[in-house]
Lab assay of single mutants.
Amino acid sequence: MGFKLLSKLLVYLTASIMAIASPLAFSVDSSGEYPTVSEIPVGEVRLYQIADGVWSHIATQSFDGAVYPSNGLIVRDGDELLLIDTAWGAKNTAALLAEIEKQIGLPVTRAVSTHFHDDRVGGVDVLRAAGVATYASPSTRRLAEVEGNEIPTHSLEGLSSSGDAVRFGPVELFYPGAAHSTDNLIVYVPSASVLYGGCAIYELSRTSAGNVADADLAEWPTSIERIQQHYPEAQFVIPGHGLPGGLDLLKHTTNVVKAHTNRSVVE
């Protein structure tokens, strides 16, 4: 069995187990497998329904001669939608809004960016022009300005110390501490036991640490421990890039980060 097929099978099995364990909360999309990078042309966006009122959005972007996937989250909030992270750029984010209108038909009224990198804030200006209120932590807003990236308009308070959590509509926002970046936030959907790890969490097929220019490698494993301790009931975990899975993604990420750190020390 090929690795790609095995990865998709694991996603399907995880979703099936969740649907059985929580039949009222989960209505997993039966329309197909989780979209992969090879299936999404740059400039297009796919939506994948995880649970009743919960979707991931998947886009792709060219970077350094390669094409990478990027995940975000959409959560229903009454007759409105909360968006977590842009679709990595203005063109993708405009396509995301169009796809949401086509498939869901509810307005996106608020959006949260989970850290300051372009795959999370690139497209904020498109959201703002569409009347979406954009939010991020003060740290993310400051770092985005320093980096020359787009800056969300509103500040999220109460997320300055490791372990801080605040309720934001249908989700809980959690600051686990520094990891992929010093400002990275985690998003949890309690009604569906869905954990969105953003770039602080890796997919299972990833074996290298990737972009760690703004990471705190020493603190990252401790931050992941905080996530595990705060959300032990999480059933569906979405990484910032690639295929979702279960809580095993947290341990896998820790292993990859520690291996990278150990290699760096040896070198």
Rank of each mutant, 00 (worst) to 15 (best):
R128I: 11
G78Y: 07
A179C: 04
L247T: 14
V37L: 14
G198W: 06
E145Q: 14
I17T: 12
N92A: 07
A179H: 03
D183T: 00
A259S: 13
D64W: 09
E44A: 12
I201V: 14
H180S: 02
S22D: 12
V194K: 01
W88Y: 01
T109L: 08
E219M: 11
D79P: 09
E44K: 11
H57G: 02
D125G: 11
L195E: 00
Y188L: 00
E225V: 11
L82F: 06
H180F: 00
K258G: 11
E219C: 04
P107W: 03
F26M: 15
S27D: 11
T60F: 08
Y135C: 05
A144E: 03
G131N: 11
V256S: 04
L73N: 01
S161P: 05
L127H: 04
V28P: 10
G246I: 04
S160I: 12
T60K: 08
D183M: 01
V121L: 07
G89H: 00
I84L: 10
T93M: 01
H180C: 00
K91N: 15
V121C: 03
Y34I: 08
N71R: 02
P176K: 01
W88Q: 00
L6T: 09
T261Y: 10
V45N: 04
A218P: 09
H115G: 00
H154Q: 09
V171Q: 01
Y12K: 15
R263C: 06
S181L: 02
V194A: 05
L185I: 11
K91Q: 15
A19T: 15
I20F: 08
G43A: 06
D118H: 08
G177S: 06
R226M: 08
G32A: 11
G78N: 10
S27G: 13
A21K: 15
Y48L: 14
V187R: 02
Y196A: 04
V112C: 04
R263Y: 11
L195V: 05
A15C: 14
H252V: 03
A15W: 07
D216P: 04
R76A: 10
N92E: 03
R110Y: 14
L249G: 02
R120F: 01
F236P: 03
N71L: 02
T114G: 00
Q229E: 13
T222F: 13
T114P: 00
H117Y: 01
G163N: 08
L143H: 07
Y175S: 01
H57L: 03
V54L: 06
S38P: 11
T207A: 14
S205H: 08
N149Y: 11
D164N: 13
I227A: 06
E219D: 08
A87G: 02
A165R: 13
V75M: 02
G198C: 06
G210P: 05
T14D: 11
F3V: 13
E39D: 12
A66F: 15
P41K: 11
P138L: 09
K102Q: 10
V11M: 07
V108C: 00
E80W: 03
N71T: 05
D214P: 07
R167P: 12
G163T: 06
F236T: 10
